[in-house]
Design a protein around this nucleic acid. Structure first.
Lengths: 127, 127
DNA sequence: GCTCATCTACGAATATATTCGTACACGAAT
DNA sequence: ATTCGTGTACGAATATATTCGTAGATGAGC
Protein backbone atom coordinates (compact mmCIF):
# COMPACT_ATOMS: atom_id res chain seq x y z
CA UNK A 1 0.00 0.00 0.00
CA UNK A 2 1.57 3.27 -1.06
CA UNK A 3 1.25 6.40 1.03
CA UNK A 4 -1.60 8.46 -0.35
CA UNK A 5 -3.24 11.29 1.47
CA UNK A 6 -5.37 14.10 0.18
CA UNK A 7 -3.42 14.88 -2.92
CA UNK A 8 -5.17 17.09 -5.36
CA UNK A 9 -3.41 17.24 -8.69
CA UNK A 10 -4.05 20.33 -10.73
CA UNK A 11 -5.48 20.16 -14.22
CA UNK A 12 -2.04 20.25 -15.81
CA UNK A 13 -0.71 17.68 -13.45
CA UNK A 14 -3.59 15.42 -14.32
CA UNK A 15 -2.75 15.63 -17.99
CA UNK A 16 0.76 14.50 -17.20
CA UNK A 17 -0.37 11.77 -14.86
CA UNK A 18 -2.64 10.54 -17.56
CA UNK A 19 0.26 10.08 -19.93
CA UNK A 20 2.26 8.31 -17.25
CA UNK A 21 -0.64 6.05 -16.38
CA UNK A 22 -0.91 5.04 -19.99
CA UNK A 23 2.78 4.45 -20.55
CA UNK A 24 3.69 3.13 -17.15
CA UNK A 25 6.63 5.51 -17.04
CA UNK A 26 8.21 8.04 -19.35
CA UNK A 27 10.81 10.74 -19.78
CA UNK A 28 9.96 14.42 -19.81
CA UNK A 29 10.49 14.44 -23.54
CA UNK A 30 8.01 11.63 -24.07
CA UNK A 31 5.39 13.22 -21.87
CA UNK A 32 5.96 16.56 -23.51
CA UNK A 33 5.51 15.15 -26.98
CA UNK A 34 2.18 13.63 -26.00
CA UNK A 35 0.95 16.89 -24.49
CA UNK A 36 2.15 18.87 -27.48
CA UNK A 37 -0.25 16.90 -29.66
CA UNK A 38 -3.17 18.43 -27.87
CA UNK A 39 -1.96 21.88 -26.93
CA UNK A 40 0.88 24.28 -27.38
CA UNK A 41 3.29 24.11 -24.50
CA UNK A 42 6.98 24.73 -23.96
CA UNK A 43 9.31 21.89 -23.09
CA UNK A 44 10.61 23.52 -19.94
CA UNK A 45 7.06 24.08 -18.78
CA UNK A 46 6.44 20.36 -18.84
CA UNK A 47 9.79 19.77 -17.20
CA UNK A 48 9.03 22.18 -14.40
CA UNK A 49 5.63 20.69 -13.80
CA UNK A 50 7.08 17.24 -13.52
CA UNK A 51 9.68 18.50 -11.07
CA UNK A 52 6.90 20.01 -8.98
CA UNK A 53 5.03 16.75 -9.14
CA UNK A 54 8.14 14.98 -7.90
CA UNK A 55 8.21 17.41 -5.02
CA UNK A 56 4.61 16.68 -4.19
CA UNK A 57 5.19 12.98 -4.41
CA UNK A 58 2.86 12.50 -7.33
CA UNK A 59 5.67 10.87 -9.29
CA UNK A 60 9.07 9.38 -8.65
CA UNK A 61 12.01 9.28 -10.99
CA UNK A 62 15.12 7.39 -11.73
CA UNK A 63 18.22 8.39 -13.60
CA UNK A 64 18.80 6.69 -16.90
CA UNK A 65 21.91 7.96 -18.63
CA UNK A 66 21.51 11.68 -18.92
CA UNK A 67 17.75 11.73 -18.59
CA UNK A 68 15.23 11.01 -15.89
CA UNK A 69 12.49 8.47 -16.19
CA UNK A 70 9.34 9.34 -14.28
CA UNK A 71 6.86 6.93 -12.79
CA UNK A 72 3.46 7.77 -11.32
CA UNK A 73 3.31 7.33 -7.57
CA UNK A 74 -0.42 7.79 -7.17
CA UNK A 75 -2.89 5.16 -8.08
CA UNK A 76 -4.97 5.89 -11.14
CA UNK A 77 -8.26 4.54 -9.87
CA UNK A 78 -7.85 6.05 -6.45
CA UNK A 79 -6.96 9.46 -7.79
CA UNK A 80 -9.78 9.45 -10.31
CA UNK A 81 -12.10 8.31 -7.56
CA UNK A 82 -11.14 11.18 -5.30
CA UNK A 83 -11.70 13.70 -8.02
CA UNK A 84 -15.03 12.22 -9.00
CA UNK A 85 -16.11 12.14 -5.40
CA UNK A 86 -15.29 15.79 -5.00
CA UNK A 87 -17.19 16.62 -8.12
CA UNK A 88 -20.16 14.56 -7.06
CA UNK A 89 -20.27 16.44 -3.80
CA UNK A 90 -19.97 19.95 -5.14
CA UNK A 91 -22.09 19.59 -8.25
CA UNK A 92 -24.42 16.68 -7.75
CA UNK A 93 -25.27 17.00 -4.11
CA UNK A 94 -23.56 13.78 -3.25
CA UNK A 95 -25.46 11.60 -5.66
CA UNK A 96 -23.26 9.51 -7.91
CA UNK A 97 -26.32 8.43 -9.76
CA UNK A 98 -27.25 11.95 -10.62
CA UNK A 99 -23.81 12.44 -12.07
CA UNK A 100 -23.89 9.22 -14.01
CA UNK A 101 -27.20 10.08 -15.55
CA UNK A 102 -25.96 13.51 -16.45
CA UNK A 103 -22.92 11.97 -18.09
CA UNK A 104 -24.92 9.40 -19.97
CA UNK A 105 -27.53 11.89 -20.99
CA UNK A 106 -25.10 14.38 -22.36
CA UNK A 107 -22.98 11.86 -24.08
CA UNK A 108 -24.08 9.86 -27.06
CA UNK A 109 -23.31 6.44 -25.75
CA UNK A 110 -23.39 3.56 -28.18
CA UNK A 111 -25.59 0.56 -27.54
CA UNK A 112 -22.48 -1.48 -26.86
CA UNK A 113 -21.39 0.97 -24.22
CA UNK A 114 -24.75 0.93 -22.55
CA UNK A 115 -24.76 -2.85 -22.55
CA UNK A 116 -21.38 -2.91 -20.91
CA UNK A 117 -22.57 -0.63 -18.19
CA UNK A 118 -25.63 -2.81 -17.68
CA UNK A 119 -23.45 -5.88 -17.35
CA UNK A 120 -21.32 -4.06 -14.90
CA UNK A 121 -24.34 -3.12 -12.84
CA UNK A 122 -25.55 -6.69 -12.85
CA UNK A 123 -22.28 -7.96 -11.51
CA UNK A 124 -22.20 -5.26 -8.91
CA UNK A 125 -25.72 -6.08 -7.74
CA UNK A 126 -24.87 -9.70 -7.15
CA UNK A 127 -22.01 -8.92 -4.82
CA UNK B 1 -31.75 30.43 -25.66
CA UNK B 2 -29.35 32.20 -23.34
CA UNK B 3 -25.91 33.23 -24.46
CA UNK B 4 -23.47 30.61 -23.24
CA UNK B 5 -19.96 30.27 -24.51
CA UNK B 6 -17.01 28.59 -22.93
CA UNK B 7 -17.58 29.66 -19.40
CA UNK B 8 -15.55 27.79 -16.88
CA UNK B 9 -16.70 28.44 -13.34
CA UNK B 10 -14.11 27.89 -10.66
CA UNK B 11 -14.65 25.46 -7.81
CA UNK B 12 -15.95 28.20 -5.51
CA UNK B 13 -18.19 29.58 -8.18
CA UNK B 14 -19.63 26.15 -8.72
CA UNK B 15 -20.53 25.86 -5.08
CA UNK B 16 -22.43 29.10 -5.35
CA UNK B 17 -24.10 28.16 -8.59
CA UNK B 18 -25.21 24.97 -6.99
CA UNK B 19 -27.04 26.85 -4.27
CA UNK B 20 -28.65 29.11 -6.83
CA UNK B 21 -29.68 26.20 -8.99
CA UNK B 22 -31.39 24.65 -6.02
CA UNK B 23 -33.15 27.77 -4.82
CA UNK B 24 -33.84 29.34 -8.15
CA UNK B 25 -32.48 32.61 -6.87
CA UNK B 26 -31.14 33.95 -3.61
CA UNK B 27 -29.48 36.82 -1.80
CA UNK B 28 -25.83 36.82 -0.86
CA UNK B 29 -26.83 36.20 2.72
CA UNK B 30 -28.83 33.13 1.79
CA UNK B 31 -26.09 31.71 -0.34
CA UNK B 32 -23.54 32.46 2.30
CA UNK B 33 -25.51 30.69 4.97
CA UNK B 34 -25.71 27.58 2.86
CA UNK B 35 -22.00 27.60 2.17
CA UNK B 36 -21.20 28.23 5.81
CA UNK B 37 -22.82 24.93 6.67
CA UNK B 38 -20.12 23.10 4.81
CA UNK B 39 -17.05 25.24 5.27
CA UNK B 40 -15.77 28.26 7.06
CA UNK B 41 -15.96 31.32 4.92
CA UNK B 42 -16.38 35.06 5.44
CA UNK B 43 -19.48 36.86 4.29
CA UNK B 44 -17.62 39.37 2.18
CA UNK B 45 -15.80 36.55 0.48
CA UNK B 46 -19.05 35.14 -0.75
CA UNK B 47 -20.21 38.61 -1.69
CA UNK B 48 -17.09 39.30 -3.69
CA UNK B 49 -17.34 36.00 -5.48
CA UNK B 50 -20.90 36.68 -6.47
CA UNK B 51 -19.93 40.09 -7.77
CA UNK B 52 -17.22 38.49 -9.86
CA UNK B 53 -19.74 35.99 -11.15
CA UNK B 54 -22.00 38.85 -12.13
CA UNK B 55 -19.11 40.32 -14.03
CA UNK B 56 -18.52 37.08 -15.84
CA UNK B 57 -22.19 36.73 -16.65
CA UNK B 58 -22.63 33.57 -14.61
CA UNK B 59 -25.42 35.23 -12.67
CA UNK B 60 -27.66 38.26 -12.91
CA UNK B 61 -29.15 40.26 -10.10
CA UNK B 62 -31.98 42.50 -9.28
CA UNK B 63 -32.40 45.07 -6.56
CA UNK B 64 -34.89 44.27 -3.86
CA UNK B 65 -34.96 46.90 -1.17
CA UNK B 66 -31.45 47.28 0.07
CA UNK B 67 -30.27 43.87 -1.04
CA UNK B 68 -29.61 42.17 -4.33
CA UNK B 69 -31.25 38.97 -5.44
CA UNK B 70 -29.09 36.81 -7.65
CA UNK B 71 -30.24 34.43 -10.33
CA UNK B 72 -28.12 31.91 -12.22
CA UNK B 73 -27.62 32.79 -15.86
CA UNK B 74 -26.00 29.55 -16.91
CA UNK B 75 -27.94 26.41 -17.42
CA UNK B 76 -27.35 23.73 -14.85
CA UNK B 77 -27.34 20.75 -17.18
CA UNK B 78 -25.28 22.49 -19.79
CA UNK B 79 -22.68 23.65 -17.32
CA UNK B 80 -22.44 20.30 -15.64
CA UNK B 81 -22.19 18.70 -19.04
CA UNK B 82 -19.28 20.92 -20.07
CA UNK B 83 -17.40 20.16 -16.92
CA UNK B 84 -18.01 16.45 -17.17
CA UNK B 85 -16.94 16.50 -20.78
CA UNK B 86 -13.71 18.20 -19.88
CA UNK B 87 -13.06 15.71 -17.16
CA UNK B 88 -13.86 12.81 -19.41
CA UNK B 89 -11.36 14.09 -21.92
CA UNK B 90 -8.48 14.75 -19.59
CA UNK B 91 -8.87 11.80 -17.27
CA UNK B 92 -10.79 9.13 -19.11
CA UNK B 93 -9.45 9.50 -22.59
CA UNK B 94 -12.77 10.58 -23.96
CA UNK B 95 -14.75 7.61 -22.75
CA UNK B 96 -17.85 8.54 -20.77
CA UNK B 97 -18.39 4.92 -20.01
CA UNK B 98 -15.02 4.57 -18.42
CA UNK B 99 -15.89 7.47 -16.18
CA UNK B 100 -19.27 6.09 -15.26
CA UNK B 101 -17.81 2.77 -14.30
CA UNK B 102 -15.17 4.46 -12.24
CA UNK B 103 -17.82 6.52 -10.48
CA UNK B 104 -20.01 3.54 -9.78
CA UNK B 105 -17.13 1.40 -8.70
CA UNK B 106 -15.69 3.84 -6.25
CA UNK B 107 -18.92 5.01 -4.83
CA UNK B 108 -21.07 2.91 -2.60
CA UNK B 109 -24.25 3.06 -4.57
CA UNK B 110 -27.36 1.69 -3.00
CA UNK B 111 -29.34 -1.03 -4.70
CA UNK B 112 -32.09 1.47 -5.35
CA UNK B 113 -29.66 3.76 -7.09
CA UNK B 114 -28.33 0.99 -9.25
CA UNK B 115 -31.86 0.00 -10.19
CA UNK B 116 -32.67 3.52 -11.19
CA UNK B 117 -29.66 3.65 -13.42
CA UNK B 118 -30.65 0.37 -14.97
CA UNK B 119 -34.12 1.69 -15.67
CA UNK B 120 -32.63 4.75 -17.17
CA UNK B 121 -30.43 2.67 -19.43
CA UNK B 122 -33.40 0.59 -20.51
CA UNK B 123 -35.36 3.64 -21.54
CA UNK B 124 -32.38 5.04 -23.32
CA UNK B 125 -31.84 1.82 -25.27
CA UNK B 126 -35.38 1.76 -26.55
CA UNK B 127 -35.19 5.21 -28.05
C1' DG C 1 -32.76 62.61 13.30
C1' DC C 2 -29.80 59.14 15.37
C1' DT C 3 -28.28 54.56 16.04
C1' DC C 4 -27.72 49.99 14.83
C1' DA C 5 -27.71 46.05 12.00
C1' DT C 6 -27.03 44.84 7.50
C1' DC C 7 -25.95 45.69 2.96
C1' DT C 8 -22.72 46.71 -1.24
C1' DA C 9 -18.25 48.26 -3.32
C1' DC C 10 -13.80 47.50 -3.98
C1' DG C 11 -8.76 47.59 -3.15
C1' DA C 12 -5.42 44.74 -1.84
C1' DA C 13 -3.09 40.77 0.37
C1' DT C 14 -2.39 36.08 -0.18
C1' DA C 15 -2.37 31.68 -2.26
C1' DT C 16 -2.01 28.79 -6.09
C1' DA C 17 -1.02 27.51 -10.85
C1' DT C 18 1.29 28.15 -15.13
C1' DT C 19 4.77 29.59 -18.15
C1' DC C 20 9.27 30.23 -19.73
C1' DG C 21 14.07 32.23 -19.98
C1' DT C 22 18.63 31.42 -18.82
C1' DA C 23 22.43 28.86 -16.97
C1' DC C 24 24.89 25.00 -16.91
C1' DA C 25 25.96 19.67 -17.49
C1' DC C 26 26.90 15.97 -20.46
C1' DG C 27 28.00 12.92 -24.23
C1' DA C 28 28.48 12.14 -29.18
C1' DA C 29 30.26 13.55 -33.52
C1' DT C 30 33.57 16.06 -35.86
C1' DA D 1 39.14 19.81 -27.72
C1' DT D 2 35.26 22.18 -29.72
C1' DT D 3 30.71 22.17 -31.04
C1' DC D 4 26.09 20.81 -30.95
C1' DG D 5 21.93 18.70 -29.48
C1' DT D 6 19.60 17.52 -25.62
C1' DG D 7 19.21 17.21 -20.84
C1' DT D 8 18.19 19.29 -15.81
C1' DA D 9 17.80 23.18 -12.32
C1' DC D 10 15.58 26.93 -10.89
C1' DG D 11 14.35 31.86 -10.38
C1' DA D 12 11.05 34.76 -11.66
C1' DA D 13 7.18 36.72 -14.37
C1' DT D 14 2.49 36.17 -15.14
C1' DA D 15 -2.07 34.56 -14.58
C1' DT D 16 -5.74 33.08 -11.86
C1' DA D 17 -8.33 32.24 -7.64
C1' DT D 18 -9.44 33.18 -2.95
C1' DT D 19 -9.86 35.83 1.07
C1' DC D 20 -10.98 39.64 3.77
C1' DG D 21 -10.67 44.43 5.72
C1' DT D 22 -12.49 48.83 5.49
C1' DA D 23 -15.48 52.40 3.87
C1' DG D 24 -19.67 54.08 3.04
C1' DA D 25 -24.94 53.48 1.86
C1' DT D 26 -29.46 52.35 3.43
C1' DG D 27 -33.51 51.30 6.03
C1' DA D 28 -35.87 49.97 10.50
C1' DG D 29 -36.81 51.17 15.03
C1' DC D 30 -36.45 54.24 18.57
Amino acid sequence: MSAQQHIKPTESELEILNVLWQQGSATVREVHEKLALKKEVGYTTTLKLMQIMLDKGLVSREVSGKTHVYTPEVDKEKTQGQIMQRMIETMFNGSAMQMVMQALGNHKATKAELDMIRDYLDKKSKK
